[in-house]
């Protein structure tokens, strides 16, 4: 069982990391710091709904840490981790309250939480309250990108779950919403 968990976590981390690194190569659409699609969160969401919250957290932390090293943005790691933590907290909470078909809502609020956490970290690190200026636009971008990644994860889950997930982990029911 332990080995299976390690393998699952490693596999999901690898997938998330590849998506992360590829996305980092794309030029950013705006000149506003902190706005990006966050496609690798599809994997985090997927993990949350299949192998469970604990492993999903591991996947997220590993992806953020390795991802910032791989893309050379070690400075951004603090922001990503702060955002990731708040986002994860929001997602866990909403996941309990909402049915699976509303995964995109969980994701949207998670993404908004991520961007708020990121701004909070930026305020603390740079010691400048002015960064809050970007909060409204980051909430909007979080809502949009969150709906997108959430819908993507929902589609993946719908297609992959019946075939693979039962084999992937029999813990899925235990961790799933009651």
């Amino acid at each position: 069982m332990r080995t299976r968990k390690i393998a699952e976590t490693a596999l999901l981390t690898a997938v998330a990391l590849i998506i992360y690194v590829v996305e980092a190569q794309l030029p950013s659409l705006t000149n506003i710091p902190g706005i990006k699609l966050g496609l690798s969160n599809v994997v985090t969401l997927f993990a949350m709904y299949t192998v469970g919250v604990g492993q999903a957290l591991l996947v997220m932390v590993a992806r953020v840490t390795l991802g910032s090293l791989a893309t050379g943005q070690v400075m951004g790691m603090i922001f990503s981790l702060a955002g990731g933590a708040l986002s994860f907290f929001v997602c866990i909470l909403l996941k309990r309250l909402l049915p699976v078909r509303l995964m995109w809502v969980v994701s949207a609020f998670g993404a908004i939480g991520h961007n708020i956490g990121q701004i909070a970290a930026a305020v603390v690190v740079t010691g400048t309250r002015e960064v809050i200026y970007y909060l409204p636009i980051l909430v909007v971008s979080g809502a949009l990108t969150g709906v997108f990644t959430g819908a993507a994860a929902q589609l993946v889950l719908r297609r992959v779950k019946p075939a693979v997930v039962k084999k992937l982990s029999n813990k899925s029911e235990e961790n799933g919403p009651k």
Binding site: I32, M75, F79, E130, V131, Y133, Y134
Partner: peptide, 12 residues
């Protein structure tokens, strides 16, 4: 408009 922010270099 928005302030100019360079987060990696902590510049505002």
């Amino acid at each position: 408009g928005a302030p100019i922010v360079c987060l990696p270099n902590r510049l505002v």
